[in-house]
């Protein structure tokens, strides 16, 4: 860990000290101890945060606390047999299963010359393409600012790859594809639709920064690019232009996801 990463870790440090045993925090504190400027900034931050945390500490009225506790206990108590992936038997079965799946995927994908989720991404985009402008809620903002708008629409995890955060948005909507929620943003420049959804259920697994690009459609060919940001799949479909234009746009981005 270098000083920059240590600073990053310490910025997210909980003032209660609950994180003190975390491996990353231990390493960051060691770096800080050797870096006077970082140590001073961290001590200053800690003193500030601790005072604010103390100021926020208030006891709940007894009656309110009791009513919350009653429901919280019901919520916690609904547990069935605890299932843990740390169980050695489960781990062995899981690993064997993953190896089998990996082997099969390697064989099939090698023959297909593609990746598992591409067909799903195309079909999802084809369904999304059918939406008219009236189905979008007009919003004028930047792409990165849509995350909370989608939270309000009951969609969590809207993300865009690095470098695409400031793209101007014209509208947004959500829809379901195979019962899975999909967030869609209509972007003014480049004129495109952006789809975000959970990658795993659609078999999409791409390395950070990796893009797969295809063209689909018979008469109106459209260029589609897929990447993955964390647990979410991100699909861009150009409304104008082909694969080369999409590649050019992606190359123009200063950062990779």
């Amino acid at each position: 860990m270098n000083a920059r990463t240590a600073r990053q870790v310490l910025r997210a440090y909980r003032p209660s000290g609950e994180d003190d045993d975390e491996r990353e925090v231990v390493a960051a504190l060691k770096i800080a101890a050797k870096t006077p400027a970082l140590e001073a900034d961290f001590r200053n931050q800690l003193a500030f945060d601790r005072l604010l945390a103390q100021t926020l500490e208030t006891a709940l009225p007894e009656e309110m606390a009791a009513s919350f506790e009653e429901v919280a206990r019901r919520l916690e108590g609904k547990r069935s047999r605890k299932f843990t992936f740390r169980d050695p038997a489960m781990l062995a079965v899981g690993l064997a299963f993953l190896m089998l799946v990996g082997l099969l995927a390697w064989i099939f994908l090698g023959k297909m010359g593609s990746f598992a989720g591409m067909q799903e991404a195309i079909e999802l985009a084809q369904q999304g393409d059918k939406a008219g402008p009236a189905q979008f809620q007009p919003i004028e903002t930047k792409a990165a600012a849509l995350t909370d708008w989608f939270v309000v629409q009951d969609f969590d995890g809207f993300v865009v790859p690095r470098g695409m955060e400031s793209a101007p948005v014209l509208g947004a909507r959500t829809f379901k594809y195979d019962d899975m929620p999909v967030a869609v943003a209509a972007i003014a420049k480049p004129k495109s639709l952006w789809y975000v959804f959970e990658a795993n259920p659609f078999g999409i697994s791409l390395s950070p920064g990796e893009w797969k690009i295809v063209e689909y459609g018979q008469q109106n060919k459209r260029a589609l690019g897929v990447t993955q940001v964390g647990a979410m799949a991100f699909v861009i479909v150009l409304r104008e232009g082909g694969k080369a234009d999409l590649q050019k746009y992606l190359d123009s981005l200063s950062h990779t996801p």
């Binding site: 931050q45 500030f48 100021t55 208030t58």
Partner: peptide, 16 residues
């Protein structure tokens, strides 16, 4: 950036 060195003073002056 970073908090100024006397940030604690501002925190002390804040009530809930």
């Amino acid at each position: 950036g970073e908090l100024p060195a006397d940030a604690e003073m501002a925190a002390r002056g804040a009530d809930a």
